[in-house]
Simulated assay, not measured.
Amino acid sequence: MNGPGSRRQANAWTRLRQHTVGELLAEFLGTAVLVLFGCGSVAVAVAGLPGSGRESVPFGAANWLIIAWGWGLAVVLGVYVAGGVSGAHINPAVTLAFAIRRKFPWYKVPAYWLAQVAGAFAGAAVVYAVYLSAINAFNLAQTPPITSRADSLSTFSIFATFPAKYFGNSPWGPFVDQIVGTALLVALIAALIDTRNMAPGSNVGPFTIGLVVVAIGLSFGTNAGYAINPARDFGPRLLTFIAGWGNKAFPGNGDWFSNYWWIPIAGPLLGGIVGILVYDLFVGQVLGVRPAPEAAPTPEPGRVRGSDESGTA
């Protein structure tokens, strides 16, 4: 039988999980799920299909669709996992934006970031373990065979991002791309969870947020791999550094880029701030000064008003 000491320990653990510790556990698992399905979809497109004998053509548009939809569905599942406990930020840029404009407690921000990076690292580690044979086979199948992972940009791309060749070695194109992509993500998340606006009901919000990620991947993805999430890039990047991809991970060097590691961190953090400010300036604050639903006039013909306009700016 369990003694009083065991019961006290169990009760203490229960109390911890009721508050911030529980939120951090949810952020860890939600981000791990995000990376498991997201990086897993890239592994399928880059190494899994060619090595399995199920694909006889080079990487092309169909593979990019796998990646775009893989990451979009990964967001859906990650949000469903963590949403009821932590709000499913699963992205440091979202956490920062909500601290700035949604009164999310600042003291929780570093802990959320740490949980998100740890979850992303764990998810990447599982993908690495599952696709290790495919990665090795892909490298050996190249002409000439690649015997050092540090020479394989394609397999590195399963886990972390790099800029398109047309940017050359300039950081500004990828940096702006990450600002714009993340601003779109955060602004649209703000719109989709704003119950004063046209927020989706019946718990389908995660699907619509996932569609935002699909749209960003299809519209802006090839510029810099659309990290749009510092944890999603930094956690797997740490994994690749440990697993032998060397300077492709840190400092982030390749044939046409160098010292790239900081761009998928700084760009999304700045983009998240821009996105939340833009939404609030153009829509959120407008909703905040409009009449309450019961006092509002009947919408003009051809206009639809959200079913619930309550909430805060």
Rank of each mutant, 00 (worst) to 15 (best):
T161H: 13
A164S: 14
Y166A: 08
Y166S: 11
G168W: 10
N169Y: 07
S170R: 11
P171Y: 00
P171D: 05
W172S: 01
W172G: 04
W172M: 03
G173H: 01
G173I: 05
F175S: 08
F175T: 09
V176A: 07
D177T: 04
Q178L: 12
Q178E: 15
A183I: 04
A183Y: 11
L184S: 01
L185Y: 12
L185F: 15
L185E: 06
L185A: 03
L185M: 10
V186D: 02
A187Q: 05
L188P: 00
A191C: 03
I193A: 04
D194R: 01
D194V: 03
D194T: 07
T195H: 00
T195G: 00
T195N: 00
R196S: 06
R196C: 05
R196E: 04
N197R: 14
A199E: 00
A199W: 00
P200S: 02
S202T: 01
V204G: 01
G205V: 15
F207Q: 00
T208N: 01
I209L: 13
I209F: 06
I209G: 09
G210L: 02
G210E: 04
L211C: 07
L211F: 15
V213Q: 04
I216G: 08
L218A: 14
L218I: 08
S219A: 12
F220C: 04
G221Y: 06
G221I: 03
N223Q: 09
N223D: 03
A224N: 05
A224I: 02
G225C: 08
G225F: 08
A227F: 07
N229K: 05
N229M: 12
R232N: 07
D233A: 12
F234T: 06
F234V: 03
P236E: 14
R237M: 05
L239A: 07
T240A: 02
T240N: 01
T240D: 05
T240M: 02
I242Q: 06
I242C: 08
G244D: 12
G244K: 13
G244M: 12
N247C: 01
N247T: 15
K248L: 15
F250K: 05
P251H: 10
G252N: 11
N253S: 04
N253E: 03
N253W: 00
G254W: 11
D255M: 10
F257H: 15
W262A: 07
W262G: 08
P264K: 09
G267R: 08
P268S: 13
L269A: 12
L270Y: 11
L270S: 08
G271E: 13
G271T: 11
I273V: 15
I273H: 09
G275T: 12
G275Y: 06
G275S: 05
I276L: 08
L277I: 13
Y279G: 11
Y279S: 13
F282D: 02
V286H: 14
L287H: 05
L287N: 07
G288H: 14
G288C: 14
V289S: 09
V289N: 02
V289C: 07
V289T: 01
R290E: 14
P291C: 09
P291Q: 10
A292R: 14
